[in-house]
Structures are given as structure tokens and as C-alpha cells.
Design a binder for these strands. Sequence first.
DNA 1: TTAGGGTTAG
Length: 589
Amino acid sequence: MLKSMSSSDDHLVSMIVSSTGKSHLRQIHAVLLRTSLIRSSDVFHHFLSRLALSLVPRDLDYSRRVFSERSNPSVSHCNTMIRAFSVSETPGEGLRLFRSLRRKTFPPANPLSSSFALKCCIKSGDLLGGLQIHGKIFSDGFLSDSLLLTTLMDFYSTCENSAAACKVFDEIPKRDTVSYNVLISCFLRNKRTRDVLFLFDKMMKEVDGCVKPDGVTCLLALQACASLGALDFGKQVHDFIDGNGLGGALNLNNTLVSMYSRCGSMDKAYEVFNRMRERNVVSWTAMISGLAINGFGKEAIEAFEEMLKCGISPEGHTLTGLLSACSHSGLVREGMMFFDRLKSGEFMMKPNLHHYGCIVDLLGRARLLDKAYSLVQSMEVKPDSTIWRTLLGACRVQGNVELGERVISHLIELKAEEAGDYVLLLNTYSSVGNWEKVAELRSLMKEKRIHTKPGWSAMEVQGQVHEFIVDDVSHPRKEEIYKMLAEINQQLKIAGYVAEVASELHNLDSEEEKGHALTYHSEKLAIAFGILMTPPGTTIRVTKNLRTCDDCHNFAKFVSRVYDRVVIVRDRSRFHQFKGGFCSCNDFW
DNA sequence: TTAGGGTTAG
């Protein structure tokens, strides 16, 4: 049919080209060349777009050749190619094309060219390239282009420069839901979780015109709540979802399951999960991982088996959740059985680093350190720093100095040693009373200028999130908090609590500071704040970014008994529920 | 002629 068409049929030809499948594209190309129909800018545009953008997988070589054969490409032809490069493995080519386009006086580049070029910079991590484009936005006269500025924010977000992203946001003439979402995702990526909640609140109250949260906003806000353990705020987001007709979305329900379980509310997680009309592997994975961090190992295994019964195949993450559930609940036999099934290929995948990490953790907790070490040595994939770190953690718990030293030498070899690793080794030495080595390591840390990253704890009171760091003095009610902490310490002492000075050492320079900093670990500040701010009997919920130390764990146990409070601490690896002087983890973490 | 944001983790 194409053969009989003339240049006056451009539109029809374009439509045919746009609907052509991959197998016929070369034939169509030949016809277009033979009939000279390709000379039409319209026809060429559609052909190139089909070739470079809408086909999966894309044929970039072919697109590149077709494009280079065009003697007078228009801006939109160039943009098609820049966009294609921005999602390819060679985004640098897109930037080069953009630059050559800008150098020409005609045709001039348009805001879209800059937008796609920025995408190229994001993909290739080209900081300088992006900054140059930003510099030209003013001289190109694109300052009022909201969509381009939104992409620019996304660029700064990937560069972890949230201050620059904020500045661009302020300059956007007409902000809409997407520009808000980009800023929110920037805050989330850059760990400014409280700002995420602030912005969500602002959108909900429609402070900025009629900008309202949409599904993506809710998804991001829920992630922030999960990270902070902000259960009340999470419930508000849930209400917003239900009240605005967003409740049926699969991805939102999956995130709700994850949020509730990461906030320690398994009842609500189950409720959402059971009400879901449709569930995919992500839904099951969220549930299994949630059960895992809450210490419900057996239930996680049951959920996994139920999932298989429903005919859903697990993914890598699903197995990670399952194996970590076994590890956290001390189900060594079950964990090893699932690991064997994974290795046999039953789940159509090979064990990855996460899976090995779980098993190393499992063996370490089960005091099978040698077995864990030989597993790491025999791994098919090269062990990364996290694997070694997991093993180092197990060495600390069991005071195995010899293996601990060997492990740290592996970390040094990988050039991946972090302050936390030295702290673990330091604690291993101190747990066996080897003070000479402690001193030696301390001076080494000083020499290498190693500083620990501060731990933080968060606590939600009436929907407001309060954050604390070690030795925090920034909180407006710091005086009351420290007074309360002193009182608690006194009460606990009477009940028999003794601070374990040797249990955890942070970035301290002298022995005298040790006892002092133990008193002011961020979770202790948060717990004191909780007792201060809530009526007797209220559950205290604290979220911590690192693993909680032995001393703080012990402190929380005493608080739960002396103050008759349920204290729930979510640390980096799991939940601890303290009640009547005991912890749900049975000191096994 | 075209465009910007997003689900599970050791």
C-alpha cells in the first residue's frame, strides 16, 4: 500500500509507520527510501520515533544510522535521538548531540532538548554536564518552563544536592503535583524524611493553590513514615488514600502493608493485605519481610508456602525476607533447608549477596561461626563488605577475637572498612577484656581519622516526629529531657540496672567520655522524651537507624519494668518489644 | 507532532 502513496499522504504514511512491528521496519524503511516518502519531516519523525523509542528492545545502532543519514535533521528529530540516548547505555552520546545542536544557530534547541539532555546527565551521573545545562537555562530564556525546571530538580536530587533542588523548586512559576512529588522524592532520597511529611501536610491542606497529593505523593509519604516508624502519620496518609478514591491501587496497598509492618503494626498490615482484591509477588514479599522484622518466623514461612500454593513465583527479595525471618527467629534448620532449595534451582534463581548475608547471619546467631566463615569463603559470588560486616557482628556477640581480626583484614583489603567496623572489633576486644588491644585500636582509629556516623532515634508524639542524635542538645525541651533522663537513671539504679560501659564505644577520644555518652545514646533520649510526653501506660515507640547496643537494650528492659510501659524499639534489623523487664527478641538479635 | 515524579531488602 505504501508504494502507491505520494507525499500528500504524509499523515497516513506516518500512521502506518507508527503501527509497524519490529519485523517489518526494515522493509518499510526500504519502501520509504525508494518512494522518497522519507524526505517528509513528518514521516521521518514517526519512523525514527518508532525505531528509537517505542520498540522494545530498542535498536539503537539502526536508529543512529538512520539519523546520521538525514542531512537536515530538525530539532524534534534531534530530540528523539537525545531522548533515546537518555535511556540507553550510552547517555553521553545524547549530551554530545545536544551540545552540537546548541552550537548551531539554526535550528535552535528548545526546552525539551535541555530536558532530555538533563536526563542524559542523570543517567550517566554527569554532574558538570548538568550544571552547564542549568547555567544555560537563563540565557536560553527557559526560566519559566515548569517541566524543564522539574527535570532540573530531579537532576539535583540524584546528585544528592537537596538544597539546590529546593532553590529550583522555589523558582518554578507554577508548581503542580509533579513538581511537589519530585521535591518529596528528593527529600526521601536524601534522608530528609521529616521534610517529606511536612510537604505532604502542606499539600493536604492545599496551601499552594489547588495542588493536591496523588497516588505517587502518597506512596512517597508512606515510605517516609515507614522509615521513621511514624505510625500515626501513616494512618493519616491511609485515610487520605481511602477518602480520595486511591484505595484500589496495587502499589499503594503493597506500600501500606510495608509501612504498617515496619511501624510494628502487624494487625493493620494483615488487615490491608486481607482486603486486597489483587496481590502480586511484591504484596507477598512485603508481608513476609514484615513478619520477619517483627520476629514472626513461623508465620513468615507459612505465608511463603501459601504464596507458592497461589501459584506465585518468588523473587530475590522474597527469599531475602524468608531467610531473614528464619535468621531473626533462630530457625536454623528451616533456614538451611530453604537455602538448599534455593541453591538447587527450585526457585529459578541463584543465591545473591543478600541471601548469603542472611545465612551468614543465621549461622552467626546460632554460634556456628566457623561454618559461617567457610560459607563466606566458598561463595560463588565475591563477598562484599556487608557480608564481612555481618560476620564481624557475630564475632562481637561471641567474643571471637581471632576471627574478628581476620574479618577486618578482609574489609581493609576491600578498602571498605567503616568506623562501625572498628567499633565492632573494639567491642569484641573489650568483651574479652583485652584493654591493650582496645587502646591500640583507638589510636589507630585516631590516626586514620575515622569518625563514626551518629545514630539517630525518632519518636512520634501526636503525629509530630521528634528526632534525637547522640548527645543531642538541639531539642527545644532538652532541659526537661535531660532532667527526666537523670531521674530515670536513678530509678533504674535502685532496681538493679548497671550501665555496661564496655558494651558500646562510639567516636570517643577518652575513657572518661565513655560513661557519659552511654547515658546520652539517642534511644535513651527518645525513651526519656516518651515518658515525659505521654500519660502513664502509653506504649513508647522508638525508631533507630543503627543496631541498638547491649546497654540501651538493657536500659529499655528496665524501663519497661520500672515504669510499667511497653517500649517498642525498631532498630536497623528488627523490632524489640520490651514488656515487664523482658524483650520479645529474647536477647537474640 | 514530543515532556517531568513512583512498590518489596541482608
